[in-house]
Design a protein around this nucleic acid. Structure first.
Lengths: 230, 230
DNA sequence: CGCTCCGTTGAAACGGTTCAACCCACGTGG
DNA sequence: CCACGTGGGTTGAACCGTTTCAACGGAGCG
């Protein structure tokens, strides 16, 4: 796959002209990272943003005591590190290679130069940021208004919906990492999974997940609290 | 103050040409709301966004049980409701007049038409969205990684920094609302304020706030947990 | 005066975390 | 091939911060 192919396949660059795609190709820089390597740290000066060509990248916050809150786990085709491109400030979170991965780096100044020339590129970027904002509002809602069972149920249903098999799928991350996405710790996650299994809502074996009672799960996801007798 | 004056004074429209300002004036619609009136609800179709000319607007999420999590309290000159303009979806939260207020409404389609023509307008909008994302990442961090004392300390220091008198200022919202901003309830806030006062960190009388021990407060804001003997 | 609204206080209950122990699958090296 | 260590996951018991529920106080106002 050529550089141009990757750029054409990137959702952010959808609908742009051939000319624009080529211009993007000219300013993009190829960078590779090994699993566990940090791409940037919170507070680093933001020199540009990244597009994932292959592999996955974890975006997260870190508390002084070392506990992490995962904001996203980014996949192929997705963008990260774009915030400081437009605020002119530092990266607001950490980015770390979750697997070996190769990324495209777009330097801030060259990219804003392109934006100045093509409104459709900026509209795509506006859409991307807005979507991300939308996602964050629901994350905030979940963290402050729902309990762990509610967040877990929502996450499982989310996975289920975008997997080919509606009722049966694999966790694409470790349970420890899932705990961090849900804003909790492995112990708590384990207990909640256990309780859900005991109530016949799900079946959990390793990274193997089965949804048995979708209706109740949806109820929990929306109500957010309690996980008792129905 | 004319419509044009308001538009010129809006940060989002800073640095635009006279021509652009006039074009914005032409598409803006004036709308007034009484205190407590809802501007839009979560799930409403997003027809456009708003700029505050006077008064204040509360943006918040609501749990099924009725508990609210405030995302912002917007002031004069600020923008809200812009997310669905670019995602094409619904408003992701509620907006309610916190005081009597008059707003400028910008219809989605007319506005994106302007953006298509002027890259500098879109760059301003990109900067705005990025700032908002940045703010949300710290809100998420606070909610999931810090306790109430940490969030309160951070908020007080924030207020202190942007008030004319560094050590002495007024809460611009009720304590009940502050509790909702901090993702907690009035009772808990009251207790934490009480404890901070007993430890000589602050003095709190009504909406009157005094910071006595800024250093320890900063420590709490960053460490996020515990509020004990130093 | 008596009403309501907001803030405060206390006691009990709850959800989640902490800490510790333990299990198991896995890979490594003797 | 077995011994060993390691990392992810699970389980139990104690602990802690926050919420819940209920009662109360004070300020503002008809």
């Amino acid at each position: 796959m050529t550089l141009l192919d990757h750029i054409v396949a990137t959702p952010l660059f959808e609908g742009l002209s051939r000319r624009q795609h080529e211009a993007l190709t000219r300013i993009a820089v190829n960078r590779s990272y090994k699993k566990g390597q940090t791409v940037f740290s919170e507070g680093d000066k933001g020199e540009g943003f990244y597009v994932i060509m292959s592999g996955r990248v974890k975006i997260f916050k870190l508390s002084p005591e070392g506990k992490e809150q995962i904001l996203h786990v980014m996949d192929r085709g997705q963008i990260f590190g774009e915030v400081p491109v437009f605020t002119g400030k530092e990266y607001p979170a950490y980015a770390e290679a979750y697997t070996n991965c190769s990324l495209l780096f777009f330097p801030k100044d060259l990219f804003t130069g392109l934006i100045r020339k093509d409104p459709s590129l900026s509209l795509n970027m506006l859409a991307l940021l807005s979507q991300r904002l939308r996602r964050f509002t629901t994350l905030i809602e979940d963290l402050s208004l729902k309990g762990v069972p509610g967040r877990l149920a929502a996450y499982l249903l989310h996975l289920s919906n975008k997997s080919s098999n509606r009722e049966h799928f694999e966790l694409d991350i470790s349970k420890g990492q899932l705990a961090s996405i849900l804003g909790t710790i492995p112990e708590t996650l384990s207990r909640v999974l256990g309780k859900m299994a005991k109530q016949g809502l799900i079946r959990s074996k390793g990274s193997h997940l089965t949804i048995l009672d979708r209706a109740t799960l949806e109820l929990i996801a929306v109500k957010g609290k309690k996980l008792d007798n129905s």
